[in-house]
Structure formats: C-alpha cells, structure tokens
Design a protein around this nucleic acid. Structure first.
Lengths: 202, 202
DNA sequence: ACCTGAACACCGTTCAAGT
DNA sequence: ACCTGAACACCGTTCAAGT
C-alpha cells in the first residue's frame, strides 16, 4: 500500500465513472484492503479527489503557441486549451466539483498573457483581452459538454425546435436550429472575430 | 400530503443547499411523514429533482427584447438571459446535474432567433449567430460562477499571478491579472464585438 | 388511495485495538 | 508505522402490511 497506488487506482474509477463513482469502500475493495486504510495514507474523500486532480493535471500536455502573426499565435493557444478540455473532459468535471476550475485554467491564462504581450497589448487592455479569450474558450468547453448530454427520454432540442411555429422567425433558420450544431466551426467563427476586435485596438 | 407540497418543500432545500442537500429522509422529516410516502406521490429522487426544476423554470421571468436597433435588441436579449442566470444560479446548477441545460436555454434561443430574423439574417448564417451569442452568454454565466468559488485554504488566482515572474509578460498586465475581473464590463466588451461582427455580415 | 415499518444494500468517517 | 474491525450516523429504494 502506498498513496501512489491508491491515487492511481482512484484515478481509474474517476476516469470511467466520474467523481460519483469513487467510493471509499469500492476503492478499498479494489485495492484488497480495509476502507479505513485509505484514510491513513491520503486522508478523507475530498483529499483523495484533490490528489486525483493533481495527478491528472501533472499529465496534461503543455499549452503551446505556434504561428508567426499575433492572430495566429493567440488562435493556436485558444485551440490548444480547447483541445485539452475536449480530450480530458473528466478532468474539467472533477475541477468543477472541487471548485478548482480557476486554478486549472491558470497555465492557459499565462500562455495567453505572454501572447497578448507579444502582440503589443499592455496593462488593463491586455488583461481584458486575456480574460475575454479565456472566457470564450472555457465557456464553449463547458457548454458543449453540457449541451450534448440530455436525460434519456427527454425531448431533443431538435424536437423542441420542430414545435416552434412563430411567424417572426425565418423558417430556414428554424430548420437549421433543428440540426446539430458544428461547434468547431462555431468556435472558430466566434474566436476569430474576438481576436480581430482585440488586435484592432492595439 | 400532495405532490405540490412535497415539490415546494424540496425547492426550499435545493435553493439553500443545492441538489446535494435534498435527501429523501431529511425532506420526509420536514414534511412530517415517512420517507416512503414521497415515493407514492412523486416517485424517486431523480423524478423529484426534475419536478423541482420544472417548478423553478415556470417561475422564471420571460426573456424580453427592448431597444430600437438590431444591435440594441440582440444586446438586451443577451443581457436578459445573463441576468436570469445570475439571479437564479441554483436553477442553472440543478439543470447541469440533471443534464437539462440545453432544454433550460431553449426560451432564450427562441428569443435570439426572433431578433436575428428581425435583423435581416437568414438560414445557416442566422443559426450561427444565434448559437454564437448563446454560447457567449451561457459560457460567461457558467465560468463566472465556477471561477468565483475556490476551495477554502487554496491559493487565490491573485496569489498565483503574484508568483509569475516571466520577462515576456508585461508587468502592468501581471498586476492587472492579480486584481479581480470586472466580469460585467468584460461581458459587454465581448458581446458588443460579437454582435458587431454578426451584423456586419448581414 | 394513501401511508407506515421493516428491511436491504449501500455510503463516509472515527477510533480503539491489534501487529 | 501501518492496518483491521466494530461502530455510528447517514443514504435511496422496495415491498408487504396496514387503514
């Protein structure tokens, strides 16, 4: 028994079934040990989940900027953050339940700060730019995940749109809302316009 | 005992302590009844939480557009949605745990669809506009809530920024990141630029 | 139709006792 | 130092039994 083995086994449970799937008793059974042994090594459930998140964060790839122009470099950082979130949604979900979302986003914030500095922005204006991009990326990531899920048996958004019958909404728009959104294209669209607006000011 | 009384009492528990605070046993004690009586009236815990969310949604104020120009009207709808989320964060949190975020955002989507139609947008382009604004608003709302919270004892983002010592980041920017963000100003900034970009295309 | 009580299968956590 | 066992205070849910 080592705290490393406990955390690694806990990681597996969290990865497959989320934080809810991590019970001290199930984990201890998987480790072949009494539930109380975990408390000696890593402490209570909250401490264990924090350790799981720490281990997960250490394995996350670095946020890297590529490209020559300021626009391209900011774009690449934003996409890099987005990719990270998409590839490890359980990390994001865990950070959310532990109220550690801000801390998790920190490396991305630093990378953005470096690039807006390189783009020539300074002070408050630069801070605004960093945060606007961060909120766009983070917001997209969170919404995308929660919008995709729907409870079994519930009406899809498609079905809801099919029932809308209002003369003041374009019928082609209605039909388009009924189809699933291309969130990647949507993200690029919103991001490019935001970066344009930011760089136009500098 | 009526299902109305059960749901209303459950609403109180959820409003103060979130979905976690709603236990069938605590609720039944508050109602002065055996835990199993709840099952007869409203079904299991998931059904009860769904009923709580439905009751909450019914009490939400309508999304209304004001203003004369397309820009002003889109802006007012976005702000209206944002205000709704800010004033009833527990509703949003509940929708998230029940995977019903998409359904909850539906009235806002319809209001946005009406306004982009009035602004002259049609078809796919209009759908893109609706979704981009919706994601901006929703993303801000979700991130704002989760960024404000931090686990007791954890370092603040301010403290993290104070430790950053990299020559390629503007020092005034570093200091600005250490201060709390004015999310309202940030939201207006990002929203206005997005609406500008959307209307420029039509 | 409506409610209770007993029961089952779970939880997290503490703490004295063992080696 | 490290682990177990018993115990406590909780859960959600089912189901036969009552009125």
């Amino acid at each position: 028994m080592s705290s490393e083995r406990i955390v690694e086994t806990a990681r597996g449970l969290v990865k497959t079934g989320g934080a809810d799937a991590l019970s001290m008793r199930k984990l201890s059974a998987e480790l072949g040990v009494a539930p109380t042994a975990i408390y000696w090594h890593v402490g209570d459930r909250k401490k264990l989940l924090d350790a799981v998140l720490d281990a997960e964060l250490a394995d996350l790839p670095e946020v890297r900027a590529t490209g020559a122009t300021p626009h391209a470099r900011l774009r690449s950082v934003a996409r890099s953050i987005r990719r990270q979130v998409q590839e490890a949604p359980h990390v994001q979900a865990l950070a959310l339940t532990l109220d550690r979302s801000a801390a998790v986003s920190f490396p991305g914030q630093v990378a953005l700060a470096r690039e807006v500095t390189a783009a020539g922005l300074r002070g408050e204006e630069a801070a605004k730019a960093v945060r606007a991009i961060l909120f766009l990326v983070g917001g997209f990531a969170m919404l995308e995940g929660s919008f995709r899920k729907r409870p079994p048996g519930a009406r899809t958004t498609q079905e809801l749109w099919a029932e809308v019958d209002q003369g003041d909404i374009d019928p082609v728009l209605l039909a388009a809302m009924g189809r699933p959104a291309d969130t990647d294209a949507l993200f690029t669209y919103a991001l490019d316009h935001l970066i344009d607006a930011i760089l136009r000011r500098s």
